[in-house]
């Protein structure tokens, strides 16, 4: 299946990394301080997304105000933890390691038939609860690491890794994450290694999704940002099956990007006709 259209992802998705860095560093500084905090906590996986969030947070708040938590499971690749430690070293952060194996294994002892998807979701949510526990104990906001590609495709665990107090990366496609990571001089082997959620051994984002980030980012940009119709996308050279598949993934995962449905009864229902900015609370 050919998924390579005429305009390349690199050309289409090129960003002014200097401007983007300035905006995202300002975002973290402003939105954290505005609510009376001066620290963030984040899960550091050893991958490029969390490394980039950490790098931006260090610039915004100082490395001693960024709390990286490494949360391996016993089947996680040892290389992931080594890479996460390397990021900490490079950025001058002090990591905390919290092994999630005991609680995950204790839970699934009662559910031995659980498939790996269920186990993966449970691990993602376990990590979330640890981050929010640290949020309380360290008076730190949870910084998110989900990028626009995975948010649009629904390639994440609802109430797990998709949860945060604020997310500097949520409007950057994975291709743009790589560009920004290079501009911020993150360790090259972390940028270049195949992206993986590392929920089980040998897991690969691109193998699991069935397409590469460069191709899907290019398609998503023309589909979402430029609002081109499927016919227009096909004219650009995108394969029709690929267009349909990605459209479908975006549509069926919409629920993951929205707050829970509230049954409307009164005249002012939260988020429907009771609309206040989040900054209202500050």
């Amino acid at each position: 299946m050919s998924t390579t259209p005429k305009p390349t992802a690199f050309d289409t998705l090129a960003i002014d990394t200097e401007v983007v860095t300035e905006i995202l560093v300002g975002f973290l500084h402003d939105e954290v301080h505005k609510v009376g905090f001066d620290r963030v906590v984040l899960g550091l996986s050893g991958g490029v997304d969390s490394a980039l969030t950490a790098a931006l947070a260090c610039r915004a708040l100082g490395a001693d105000h960024v709390i990286p938590v490494i949360m391996p499971y016993r089947t996680s690749s040892p290389r992931s933890e080594a890479d996460a430690r390397h990021v900490c070293e490079a950025l001058g952060m002090t990591p905390t390691v919290s092994d999630i194996s005991p609680q995950i294994d204790a839970y699934f002892a009662a559910h031995p038939d659980a498939d790996r998807g269920r186990r993966g979701n449970k691990m993602a949510r376990e990590r979330m609860t640890i981050l929010y526990d640290f949020s309380w104990s360290h008076r730190a906001l949870v910084a998110g690491t989900s990028n626009k590609t995975e948010l649009l495709l629904g390639y994440g665990t609802i109430h797990g890794d998709m949860v945060s107090a604020l997310n500097p990366l949520g409007d950057l496609y994975k291709t743009q994450i790589f560009m920004l990571a290079r501009a911020l001089d993150l360790p090259v082997h972390i940028i270049d290694k195949p992206p993986s959620a590392d929920l089980w051994e040998g897991q690969s984002d691109e193998a699991e999704l069935g397409f590469g980030y460069a191709a899907v980012d290019n398609l998503l940009y023309h589909m979402v940002d430029e609002r081109r119709t499927p016919e227009e996308l096909a004219e650009l050279g995108f394969n029709c099956e690929f267009i349909d598949e990605v459209c479908q993934k975006v549509r069926v995962s919409q629920y993951k990007r929205r707050p829970p449905l509230i049954a409307k009864l009164g005249v002012r229902t939260i988020d429907r006709d009771f609309r206040y900015p989040r900054d209202w609370g500050n």
Binding site: I15, D16, V20, I23
Partner: peptide
């Protein structure tokens, strides 16, 4: 507001 951060185009 800031919208559009393409390379070589400023904001």
């Amino acid at each position: 507001p800031v919208r559009g951060v393409g390379r070589g185009t400023a904001l």
